[in-house]
Each structure stands twice: as C-alpha cells, then as structure tokens.
Design a protein around this nucleic acid. Structure first.
Length: 160
DNA sequence: GCCAACGTTGGC
DNA sequence: GCCAACGTTGGC
C-alpha cells in the first residue's frame, strides 16, 4: 500500500464534504505531475486530505482510494471549466480516482506542525512555493501525521 | 527551442 | 488582499 496527499480548498470541497457525500471522484486535476501520481494510485491506498487556502492550512483527515485511475469525465464536457478540447475519448489526457472518507481528525494538523516534523522535511509539500496538488507521502510522514492528530496507530492500521 | 507574458496557486 | 513561486502559452 502507498500513501498520498490530496489538496483541496475546504471552501470548495473539504473533508466534511467528503464525509457527507461518502465517495467522490477526484476530478479536475490538470497538472501532468499530479496526474501521473493519480495514475499510480491503487485501490486501498491511503490519502491525507489536505486543506489549502484555509486557516490553518493542514491535514484534516484520511481518505482511501476506492477506485483506481480512470478517465476524468470533465475533460469531455464543453461546459466544464475543466474541459480540454485537445483530449479525446480514445486517448484521454486526464485521469481521476475515487476516494472515500476513512478518518476525520479531531483537529487539523497544520502545515506549521508538519514543518516541525523531521518526517516531512524531504516532502514537496513543505517546500516553499510548491503547488503540486497530488503528491506521494513517505510512510513515516503518514504515521507521524496520524500520531500528531492524536490517533492510535494500531486503531488506524486496523481500519485500513 | 527560447523566453517573456500571463494565469493560477496558496501561504501569509 | 498581497505577492512569490510556479506552470503554461505563444511569438519569434
């Protein structure tokens, strides 16, 4: 199993929204590096759900990949802001996965807190100016984040 | 293939 | 709201 981080603006779609809907296609990713990571995801992989443009910015919970990458439907919809006229059904340019909520953190583990953890030092997330919205997370960083959220690691391991 | 201009992201 | 950082576009 691999670990990932997904960014979302809570004003648009936060972890509470994921809990409300139960399952969500992670569409609208229009960056090649992020897309490539989406395509590496497998069902059962765990994702830290990161709130960007929030106060504080940080990880709000854990989601699970419940469907591996498939074509992002919005790229074919002319009315969508994510429409891509250069993409085709035969060779879709953009992909999405489906995710479902697993654990809501009692409180957000802030970006500030992550920056204070040695496990996050090498990550693109904590690098200044990083805008990547889908990125891999080292297992150590994943578990350190859950620990910082006050969650029992054994309990979480049992869930996943 | 270079690079300036532009639009977007996202912390603050 | 500001603005630094970054990715993309398009003229040449």
């Amino acid at each position: 199993m691999r670990f990932w981080l997904l960014k979302s603006e809570p004003d648009v779609f936060g972890f509470a929204d994921l809990v409300r809907v139960g399952r969500e296609p992670w569409n609208g990713v229009r960056n090649y590096q992020a897309r490539n990571f989406l395509r590496e995801m497998r069902e059962g992989d765990l994702c830290l759900f990161y709130h960007s443009n929030a106060r504080p910015a940080g990880v709000a919970g854990v989601a699970r990949v419940c469907r591996a990458a498939y074509a992002d439907d919005l790229q074919f919809k002319p009315d969508s802001k994510y429409f891509d006229p250069k993409s085709s059904v035969d060779a879709p340019r953009w992909s999405m996965v489906d995710v479902e909520p697993l654990i809501a953190f009692p409180q957000v583990v802030s970006l500030d807190a992550l920056r204070g953890m040695a496990e996050w030092e090498a990550s693109a997330l904590t690098r200044r100016g990083s805008r990547l919205s889908v990125l891999p997370v080292e297992p150590e960083a994943f578990w350190a984040t859950l620990d910082a959220a006050g969650l029992s690691l054994d309990e979480v391991a049992g869930l996943s």
